[in-house]
Design a protein around this nucleic acid. Structure first.
Lengths: 148, 148
DNA sequence: GCCAATCTCTATTGAATTTGTCGAGTTAAG
DNA sequence: CTTAACTCGACAAATTCAATAGAGATTGGC
């Protein structure tokens, strides 16, 4: 299960992606639009900022903007920042590798081998899907609904 | 990340799968062989028993045995019993579905759509791999190592 | 029948994680 | 210089994770 925090992050990013270029969106607006606790969202956006995914403007007329185009922000990146490693085992993480204390011999650990395939399949989806895909499909779904 | 408990469960099952048919294995033996805290393993095996994956004999000469053949026990089943739902979102779980409070309209929720693909890919691996595969490959790896 | 070995079951515990909340900063516009 | 915004660190309640504890039930063997 991904965390609530990660869901909030993804939804916040889709809001930013739908904004006009260069138009900062306030935390409060995102929070109320998406029903996210404002103070919690502050932390999330700050985190995303520290990881170079968004930028912020302070003071009046301030807010948040995407730092990269929406099609360059993958679900995988976001999850990694917010929820930590994608891999189901520490010894399979690309970004936070940690040896399993008990299992000796990673080559021969069959559990590891199975979950390596899980990790690969998961990464394939998460790193090939972007925030831009999310909003494109949302619009598509909306059109479908209106035409139905 | 899967839990430590799930790793223990999978390893315990591979031990049972390698036993002679009808030969019960004691918790203590599994625990010491696999370096699993004994009392913790007791709970795990009991859980697996309650879910029909293993059976037990009490008293002297007692122990645990697989209730189903090793090739009929998938990683997915085990994870579901020990760690709960496979799906990354409650609204995608086949066994413990729960609506997302905030997202209205599952059809149009693009986050859900992305994670549906993740879930599908994960299930494809986890439910097509069994305990028998795990020990077969382990033996294969051992042979490879000896020949190298 | 009794003893010892073994599984059974419930409760408890400590640490970590999750999901927030609070409040005192800092910055920029007007 | 005031006000509206982001920044940052602490705190806290609830839940989950990883064990541990201990009393009970069952069986085999003498």
């Amino acid at each position: 299960m991904i965390t609530q925090k990660a869901k909030y992050a993804l939804r916040a990013l889709t809001v930013l992606a739908e904004a006009e270029d260069g138009e900062p969106i306030m935390i409060s607006d995102i929070a109320s639009q998406q029903k996210i606790p404002k103070k919690f969202l502050e932390q999330i956006l700050l985190d995303l900022k520290h990881h170079g995914m968004v930028e912020s403007r302070r003071g009046k007329q301030g807010g948040y903007l995407l730092l990269k185009p929406a099609h360059a922000i993958t679900f995988g990146e976001v999850l990694r920042v917010i929820d930590g490693p994608i891999a189901p085992l520490p010894c399979l993480s690309l970004t936070a590798y940690r040896r399993c204390e008990d299992c000796d011999g990673e080559q021969s650990c069959e559990i590891r081998h199975v979950f390596a395939r899980v990790a690969e399949a998961t990464r394939k989806v998460l790193f090939s899907t972007t925030i831009a895909d999310a909003i494109a499909n949302r619009r598509g779904a909306e059109v479908t609904r209106l035409l139905a």
